[in-house]
Design a protein around this nucleic acid. Sequence first.
RNA 1: CGCGGGGUGGAGAAGUGGCAUCUCGCCUGGCUCAUAACCAGGAGAUCGUGGGUUCAAGUCCCACCCCCGCAACCA
Length: 477
Amino acid sequence: MSKFYITTPIYYINDKPHIGHAYTTLVADVLARWHRQQGDAVFFLTGTDEHGAKVQESAAAAGLAPPEFADKNVDKFKQAWQSLGIKYDYFIRTSDERHEAVVKDLMRQIYESDYIYEGLYEGLYCVGCERFLQPDDLVNGKCPLHPHQLPVQQKEKNYFFKLSSFRDKLLAALENDKYKIVPATRRNEVVGKLKKGLADISISRAGVSWGVQVPWDKAQTIYVWVDALINYYSATQFENKGKDFWPANVHLMAKDILWFHAVIWPALLLAAELPLPQTIACHGFFTIDGQKMSKSLGNVIDPNDLVKEFGVDAARYLLLSQIPFNSDGDISWERFRERYESDLANGLGNTFSRVTNMIEKFGQGRFNQAQGVNQFTSITASAVASALRNFQFDSALLAIFNVVSSIDEEIERTKPWQMAKDSKESAIGPLLDKWGTMLLDVAMYLKPFMPATAKKMEDALRTEKITKAEPLFPRLN
RNA sequence: CGCGGGGUGGAGAAGUGGCAUCUCGCCUGGCUCAUAACCAGGAGAUCGUGGGUUCAAGUCCCACCCCCGCAACCA
């Protein structure tokens, strides 16, 4: 038995969860469940990122103090994960003072190792907003919120992290697989950028009060990203369930935040002389009906709506099977409905009905489970394992569903109903044993992906007297 | 020449030199245990375009066209 520590990003509490957050978290859940099933000691961490200027502003806009604002919003995430059947081991909030204590300790250590120095941060500043502006923020060269004030070039005293001095070490670490970035294309991207050079980064803010205080300068707070990244480590320090789990086996994320995880985070760890995470796994973005997901287009899919339409397990199946992990993918309600009908209702659901019904009709409600695990489906077991090792959730599911198809084929070939007519019931028994066992195998493989369905299948197949099962996936209307 | 990904039957994907594959959809036939489900067979691809290398190219090389991310203080 080995340990398996997997994380999702901690989500910025300003947002409410959308399908992108849901996908990342779901993937983590599947891997966590799979490793638990393999007997590994698992720590699955998710949470929320609650500090920073944006939260401060949003809270103010809502007329709340930042902590109240965060308390109010954190439930949206917890609720979404619950409705998707996601079982994390711990939910971390960066406003937790135990996390803050670890951040301070770590930053002080890095500071005392001379990897942090004082400098000037320069950028455009909007006085009306009291914050620095990104070039993207500008509309006609002005702050959209304060179009009558010209943004000014401003300087602020900040503390800087000597990121640049870690360039060679990071490149070497990647070269030697001290940590991995998957997929390879993303890794190449990072290596390419690293080779171009690396600038030091500002890791503190003077104008942001909602954050972790810089331990050696009370006028500054730690830059929210640095604070956030440390969550992966801090949870293993103050939370009992996470003890002895550092370093992480897998940090999961979408590609937008790869740089932070693949460069800044490992550099901070090197500076603190902590072990590096094993794998940085990074998935793509989704477009919806070929368009970028965006609030203004109004095409953002709420994971709750997906669950409402299809049910938890079907929602899980659709997300995992329809989105390629390694690249961007397009999704649409229409395709979700098609897949629901073809794979779940007509496929697994219908086959389960056929077999349970035949066991009731031709087998007196009983079948003999074949001895040994994976009696008929050992190839599937290794296919699933290797797919999961490579984050190929779609092919893992495909491998499992192939078992279902093969049952359908064999039913067709052997025609049990014909045997019954010809009074050859005794020949049906062994077939029912085989199919029943195969469906139990399917249930076992499906557990990490569709836990509720797997349980329904097992319950139905393990009763004293098996009767035709209720549809696992009722047809959509 | 900023960096990177991609363009494969109607849709979504696999495929890094050797008969172009899978899922969905479509057509025809079969079946009736099953959620009008299932099974078999079939039609459908000049693999973005033009050159090149090779006995052999979706796959390697060159040029071009088109989409899409990223471009470092951003979730």
